Simulated assay, not measured.
Amino acid sequence: MIFPNRCYKLSNRWFYLAAALVIAVVFGTALYLQYVLHQEPCPLCMIQRVIFIAMLVLFAMAALHNPGRGGAKAYAGLLSFLAISGVAAAGRHIWLQHLPKEQVPACGPGLDYMLESFPMAEVWKELMHGSGECAEKGWTLLGLGIPEWSLLLYVLLGAWAVMIAFRKSA
């Protein structure tokens, strides 16, 4: 049993809304880290933020739409794709942070410069490749850094979307 019996009486709308609120809190935390604690996001952090925003939008749309079984499966598919993409970006970020110092790639140009100077395909390639600033470890909680927490959250949110799609609703 994935959900307790009393949860079967709740509409899927509440489960979608809960996930959207979790992502909103996480995104608010990221903004706090950036603007209050002055931890500038690296290129891979920016990609992870975009993925979280896309997931937030989809969870919010699903909460408003309150789809039936087929729609819930469609949302689960899209959200799972985004979660897997997030796992890939966070995994790359974690890998860069655990490289020996001599193997860390050089810092690349800033995002503003890349957007002005490079074609979009090249910008995405550079962002996904990561750079030296992605290897820096910043804020941690319980011994885990931001990319580790992001990876964990992507896995949980993807599983949450799938569980919503296959639960027996009211």
Rank of each mutant, 00 (worst) to 15 (best):
A30W: 00
Y32M: 11
Y35S: 12
Y35R: 12
V36A: 09
V36N: 01
L37M: 14
E40H: 06
E40P: 03
C42Y: 00
C42L: 00
C45K: 03
M46W: 03
R49N: 06
V50A: 15
I51S: 06
I51V: 15
F52S: 04
I53Q: 11
M55Y: 00
L56K: 02
V57K: 03
M61I: 13
M61F: 09
A63K: 01
L64Y: 08
G68Q: 13
G70K: 09
G71H: 02
A72C: 12
K73T: 09
G77C: 07
G77A: 13
L78Y: 02
G86V: 02
V87I: 15
V87E: 13
A88Q: 13
A88E: 11
A90M: 08
G91R: 04
R92E: 05
H93C: 04
I94N: 04
W95P: 00
L96P: 00
L96H: 04
Q97G: 03
H98V: 04
H98E: 10
P100S: 01
Q103D: 15
Q103A: 15
P105S: 14
C107M: 12
G108L: 11
P109A: 09
P109W: 00
G110Q: 09
G110M: 05
D112W: 05
M114V: 02
M114H: 10
L115N: 06
E116V: 05
S117F: 00
F118P: 03
F118E: 14
V123I: 11
W124A: 11
W124F: 14
W124R: 08
E126M: 14
E126Q: 14
L127Y: 04
H129Y: 07
H129S: 15
H129I: 01
G130F: 01
S131T: 07
S131M: 08
G132E: 12
G132A: 06
E133G: 03
E133W: 06
E133L: 10
C134S: 08
E136Y: 08
K137L: 10
G138F: 02
W139Y: 15
W139A: 15
W139R: 12
W139S: 13
L141Y: 13
